[in-house]
Design a protein around this nucleic acid. Structure first.
Lengths: 336, 336
DNA sequence: GATTAGCACTCAGCAGTTACGAGTGCTAAT
DNA sequence: ATTAGCACTCGTAACTGCTGAGTGCTAATC
């Protein structure tokens, strides 16, 4: 267990380092402490903290830098909760006031806002829709050879597809197909819509309108797989170039390249359990090798949606997480 | 008018510089020429070319670098048409074999492919749909208080919106609303759908189902404005970090930041007339200040869609434009 | 008149040197 | 336990000189 003074010193080092990105010396720390203490004392304490693994020294004649273990303690215990000021709250509220209809567009927009709000690259993940059910499955006849399939789910997601038919279609057929689809699929969860059920439904109709049904089933399958696949978006990627830790182009490239591969990012976020308030992963806690000197602050919205920002381990955890939390709370309003 | 030898020298300089990114000296050029000539002669010629504005010297004791005027001439007259080899063609064909249903997703995917094919950031712009007409406008009753509006256009674009009604709805009402919508809007071009027509249509029905119609009109308006607004996507942005000209982080940041602002990029592409084969803008030809040392190679697909890549003025015009052209030709197949 | 060998000149880049200073660990005094 | 003092470390920045690629010019050659 760390003494209070050690904690205060650690906090001072992290706070300072977050601001300056320069190794922090004993003198600078001693100036910051609540009880006045000489730099020599601080030096001893800092040497201790280094032995305990909370601090690191880039080289002998430099100040100290927090280790990931140090950041972890800072985040868990030391960090002051950042209080948003009025202009920040204002900005967030303004950002939230925009209305977007499509879910995906909304999430993209949200990501953009967060990246602007925090000046960090932002990753957003749409909620997984696996527990949804089919509410309505309709055939619209556009002309003799063209139909539109419309699928509505219990949470108001709508998907559609246009199909060109080889044989001409009567209004009656269209209505019959609609009825068949609704009869067979309504109330079925997207996840539960197995291959067996699909083929069963297909044969159950025993009609000449099977062409429509086949198309409909194909369409339903696609919707299912798409709804299982959560969409992942990245916004504000250029922000990483503003951090001195990514002055090294090769590292910056590596990271950006990784981030723009949404599949890879997806695996990353897969593990984040939903319904978290704020989850911070620091350095190697992100198992992904390219992220070992980055941190991620992530929170959830809606049910199972994720929104998070990425930065160097030296990021301003308090401020960024405060802004992110506030934004996510506001976003929550959209989802009820 | 430039002598043939001057042209050959200019071409050699550009070719060499494109490969190496290093200023090209007279010796290197003389080695490349078809008729053997001493470096001294080349030196004289290069001094001429510099006076004429085709070449530039970063500093006295360095080789020469093409000016934008030099690139222009190179692109217009000197550049050899790059012949794609089999593996490249193969790669492009493979990329093109993927099927995507939604137009926007397709274009995003196309952008991703081109950025992978060329190793350049790629900008894609969806075709403008202003000349489209409404083909079908349907109301689907989901439950007593919920409808889905579905709008189908002549080029098979489908848009929908879910609406929650305050008053309960009968099947009969839904059918009547559908009819009213189809009667009034079918065949009307999206662009031509003016406010006047909209309100006229609204009153023409004189029904209690106005709630639906109001929602439908609002929806139609949104579709109109959205279809006028062409979507712009950026893929492969990290690629710019691979060019030595963007080793300077600040420049790289500036450029990336500009590129991720799709509105700004939109203004840029607005001027590109459609139905071009390949259009190359070099350096200051891009009026946008941040792009003064970048070039863009752009081509069109579909009707009015654009796809282009961005790079330093020192980009490999021949190879990149060959790949882009080939890809765009393949993409064309999707649009008929 | 065009070409070229030869030569003096320029200058970015690199390596080596030095000086500086921020920061350390240790010791001995308080 | 704290701290003043001090020798030590080492990255950084500034200066130096050197090297070599590349130039422009001149005078000889074709």
């Amino acid at each position: 267990m760390l003494s209070d003074r050690k904690k205060e010193i650690l906090k001072a080092v992290v706070d300072d380092y977050i601001m300056t990105a320069e190794p922090v010396g004993s003198k600078a720390v001693s100036r910051r402490l609540s009880v006045p203490v000489s730099s020599a004392t601080v030096r001893n304490e800092m040497a201790d903290l280094e032995n305990m693994g909370y601090l690191e020294q880039p080289h002998t004649s430099a100040g100290r830098v927090p280790s990931n273990k140090g950041y972890r303690l800072y985040v868990d215990e030391l960090m002051e909760r950042y209080r948003l000021n009025i202009s920040e709250i204002d900005r967030i509220e303004k950002a939230l006031s925009i209305r977007v209809n499509e879910l995906d567009k909304l999430i993209i927009e949200a990501g953009r806002m967060v990246s602007e709000l925090t000046n960090h690259p932002t990753i957003t993940v749409t909620p997984s829709r696996s527990e949804e059910k089919i509410r309505r499955f309709e055939v619209i006849k556009v002309d003799e050879h063209t139909i539109v399939l419309v699928l509505v789910t219990t949470s108001d997601m709508i998907k559609n597809r246009i199909c060109h038919l080889t044989s001409p279609l009567t209004d009656f057929d269209a209505a019959a197909a609609s009825k068949a689809l609704n009869d067979n699929f309504t109330g079925i969860s997207l996840e539960g819509l197995t291959q067996e059920q699909i083929t069963a439904a297909e044969f159950a109709t025993g009609q000449t309108i099977t062409e429509i049904l086949i198309a409909a089933i194909d369409f339903a399958e696609e919707v299912i797989s798409a709804s299982g696949r959560r969409q992942i978006y990245l916004e504000g990627a250029p922000n990483i170039l503003r951090f001195p830790e990514y002055r090294d182009i090769d590292r910056a490239y590596e990271l950006m390249d990784f981030l723009s591969d949404t599949n890879a990012v997806g695996e990353l976020t897969a593990l984040s359990e939903s319904e978290i308030e704020i989850k911070i992963t620091i350095g190697e806690e992100n198992l992904e090798p390219v992220l070992t000197d980055s941190s991620i602050i992530m929170t959830s919205y809606g049910s199972g949606g994720l929104i998070g920002v990425l930065g160097p381990t030296r990021m301003d955890y308090a401020r960024v997480s405060a802004r992110l939390r506030r934004f996510a709370e506001g976003l929550e309003r959209y989802f009820k």
